[in-house]
């Protein structure tokens, strides 16, 4: 099975139409959904937060079948993530996209659980402490950046 970084790629990554934005609504919805999951999975395993629409991005091309997403398709998939609340545009021109592995609400829950688990409810902590503190190890918090 193909891999990209640490991510095992699903078989349909070799399906050429996967790289062409489909015009038929139902088909397109399914395609967008599959792309959203794959982008999030990839970013999480590769620890990537930002996707530049105009820069090369390894996930957006498959040299094995010589297919890559065009600008329109990339924009469509990232926009779909943004409208799901799983990504945010970083500029007005929609050129750079911040990928949220967890939704903002999920992050809030994670922080709350982290605070409760460590008995820190009445303490004041800096973001840096949360990010790189000894308690954060292994919780997923240490890569948090917002």
């Amino acid at each position: 099975m193909q891999t990209l970084g640490e991510l095992k790629l699903p078989p349909f990554f070799n399906y050429p139409p996967y790289f062409t934005l489909q015009p038929v609504r139902e088909t397109k919805e399914k395609q967008v959904q599959l792309w959203k999951e794959l982008i999030i999975d990839y970013c999480r395993t590769q620890k990537i937060f930002i996707i530049g629409l105009e820069e090369d991005f390894p996930l957006f091309s498959n040299p094995a079948i010589e297919r890559s997403l065009n600008y329109e398709a990339r924009a469509a998939f990232l926009s779909a993530l943004v409208s799901d609340g799983r990504a945010e545009w970083m500029d007005k021109g929609h050129r750079r996209c911040l990928i949220l592995w967890h939704r903002i609400q999920e992050w809030a829950d994670i922080i709350l659980r982290f605070v409760k688990d460590n008995g820190l409810e009445d303490n004041v902590m800096t973001v840096e402490e949360m990010r790189s503190g000894i308690e954060s190890r292994g919780t997923g918090m240490y890569i948090f950046c917002a």
Binding site: F12, P17, P23, T27, L34, E66
Partner: peptide, 16 residues
Amino acid sequence: CRDVSPDGFRFYINIF
């Protein structure tokens, strides 16, 4: 499903 590439315009069975 369609596949538009430098090779041309081709159709595949829809596996989505």
